[in-house]
Design a protein around this nucleic acid. Structure first.
Length: 526
RNA sequence: CGCGGGGUGGAGCAGCCCGGUAGCUCGCAAGGCUCAUAACCUUGAGGUCGCAGGUUCAAAUCCUGCCCCCGCAACCA
């Protein structure tokens, strides 16, 4: 059995979660669910990165301690992910002193023993108004744009991680063991390596950063984000502490799902850190793009930040339309766009009118036959399915979710509707009628399985309504799609369907929606 | 010359690696059907494939140059 360890980046909880956070968790969850359905043994970890100056500043602004701030915000992430059906096995918090801190400190010590950390003096432009270092980008005519005054040059001590030593090793690693998906990101990273790596600042003086993990044996220094945050991937497994889950790193295929902004840290710093801590490198880095909102970069100043809870509310708490949208619209690798118009179009045009409606029309007709369903015989569909499964599998394994959904799931639903039109079962009687309806029912059974990684709840509802014997078990982590299930007519014990229930109810009519602003108010107000 | 992604009918995309009647979804128009969630099906209109050169019997597809949009450029998912 293949072991898989999948992680996402850990989120920064200085504010409520937004669509960008959700995109990553949904993509990772689809991967993970697909792995489980194939029969892989999977562990899936998500979490929060809770230290740093921004948390410190936000907390001060809100008159809270950093700890109070994160304890207030972290549940927002946890609740949201639970409502979205993110099937994580562990939610790790970097403020966790039992599991996380000891691992990080041990890792630091190992890097020090390996002479990979060096204390240096760093000189930067510090604005006392912002209480932080500014980059050249922040300056307008040499002044801090916020406080309209020149920053002062400040020198401070930092530990540096000597990443520059590892350039050659990293090149080899990235060409062989550590695979970056998609390929153009790999090329980008290799091109970057050609310029050579620079050493990375790994700590701050306690005076400028107090909210973080202390540097061992140096009371005046606190760890900066990289050593702290990246280490979550192994601290959550009990590395250097109880060692309990270590096999999930050592014997599994390790996949990190992250955004393009932090690609270089995961591609370069992280494996170099692990190397000097005596831990093997991860296997795969899956880099997704960002979400724009209504075609523009999502930002607070533009006021187009989409709140996930508004999307959930729009669909009466059902997470599946959003999960479908994100997997369907955002190809792994490139950027995608979130648009209210588009998500409604997909909901109405695809989920409701194609898939939901097909299920309903079949069930309504079967009800008139006492809900009995007979073994399907339609040879054309049998052949179609034989073709769809391997191609769907290929797309899923390549993280091409958009193709998996459009070319296979949606295409099948459309084929089902065409078949209805062609055979007109409502005009038939007896065996003829039963055979046609049995065939379309069987197509829906396959659609339900194909949808399972993307829309687990919906997939199960379809199978439950169809009365498929295994339907009740579909949401269990141990549920595996067997060859029999993939075979046309492969579910022998299937005898009767249940009552039809509308899967995707109609939304407000567009003209009414235009008259009632509340739906859009959420993302238009700052 | 910092790096990368993209420019295909009204909208969103596929095709480009491995040249050969330009495809899909939505929208629009007409027709059909009535089992179904004002759903479903069929047909049609609409494109000089960013621009300019080149290679070739033949280029959206290969080569060269240019223009435009977007993202990243080290700590903002």
């Amino acid at each position: 059995m293949t072991k898989q360890y999948v992680t996402t980046a850990i989120d920064y909880p200085n504010a409520a979660p937004h669509m960008g956070h959700v995109l990553e968790k949904v993509l990772a969850d689809v991967c993970v669910r697909w792995m489980r359905l194939k029969g892989d043994d999977v562990r899936f970890q998500i979490g929060t990165d809770e230290h740093g100056i921004k948390i410190q500043q936000t907390a001060a602004k809100e008159k809270l301690t950093p700890k109070e701030l994160v304890d207030r915000n972290v549940p927002l992430f946890q609740d949201l992910y639970a409502r979205l059906g993110i099937s994580a096995d562990l939610f790790i918090r970097t403020s966790d002193r039992c599991k996380h801190w000891p691992t990080v400190m041990e890792l630091w010590k190992r890097l020090q023993e390996e002479k990979m950390l060096e204390k240096r003096t760093y000189t930067g432009l510090y604005c006392s108004g912002c209480e932080r270092f500014l980059t050249k980008k922040d300056l307008v005519d040499g002044n801090c744009d916020v406080h309209q005054r020149a920053p002062e040059e400040v020198r401070e001590e930092n530990y540096f991680f000597l990443l520059s030593k590892e350039t050659a090793w990293l090149k080899k690693l990235l060409k062989k063991e550590y695979k970056i998906v998609p390929t153009f990101r790999e090329n980008e990273t290799l091109a970057l390596l050609e310029q050579g790596c620079e050493d990375v600042s790994f700590s701050r003086p306690k005076s400028s950063l107090s909210w973080g993990i202390p540097v061992p044996d140096d009371p005046n220094q606190v760890m900066y984000v990289w050593c702290d945050a990246l280490t979550n991937y192994i601290s959550g497994l009990g590395y250097f502490t109880d060692h309990e889950m270590k096999q999930w790193w050592e014997d599994a295929t390790v996949t990190h799902v992250i955004g393009k902004d932090i690609a270089r840290f995961h591609a370069l710093i992280w494996p170099a850190m692990l190397k000097h801590a005596g831990v093997r490198s991860p296997d795969r880095l899956l880099i997704h793009g960002f979400l724009t909102s209504e075609g523009e970069k999502m930002s607070k100043s533009l006021g187009n930040v989409v709140k996930p809870e508004n999307v959930l509310a729009h669909f009466a708490g059902n997470p599946d339309p959003l999960r479908f949208y994100l997997s369907h619209e955002v190809p792994v690798g490139n950027d995608g766009d979130f648009s209210w118009k588009r998500i409604d179009e997909l909901y109405i045009g695809v989920l409701s009118n194609k898939i939901g409606n097909l299920l309903n029309r079949v069930l309504v007709l079967l009800r008139k036959e006492g809900n009995e369903i007979s073994v399907p015989v339609d040879a054309s569909f049998s052949q179609l399915l034989k073709d769809h499964w391997p191609r769907y599998t290929e797309s899923m394994d390549a993280f091409d979710f958009s193709t998996a959904l459009t070319d296979h799931v949606v295409a099948l639903a459309m084929a089902g509707n065409v078949k209805m039109e062609e055979k007109k079962p409502w005009t038939l009687t007896g065996t003829e009628r039963a055979e046609v309806l049995g065939g379309i029912g069987e197509v829906l059974r396959h659609i339900s399985l194909l949808l399972l990684p993307f829309m687990p709840e919906t997939a199960q509802k379809i199978s439950l309504q169809l009365g498929v014997p295994y339907a009740g078990k579909m949401l269990e982590k141990s549920f595996v799609i067997t060859d029999e299930m993939k075979t046309w007519g492969g579910e022998k014990g299937w005898k009767a369907v249940s009552e039809p229930v509308i899967l995707f109810p109609q939304l407000e009519k567009p003209e009414n929606a235009a008259l009632s602003p509340p739906r859009r108010a959420g993302h238009l107000s700052p």
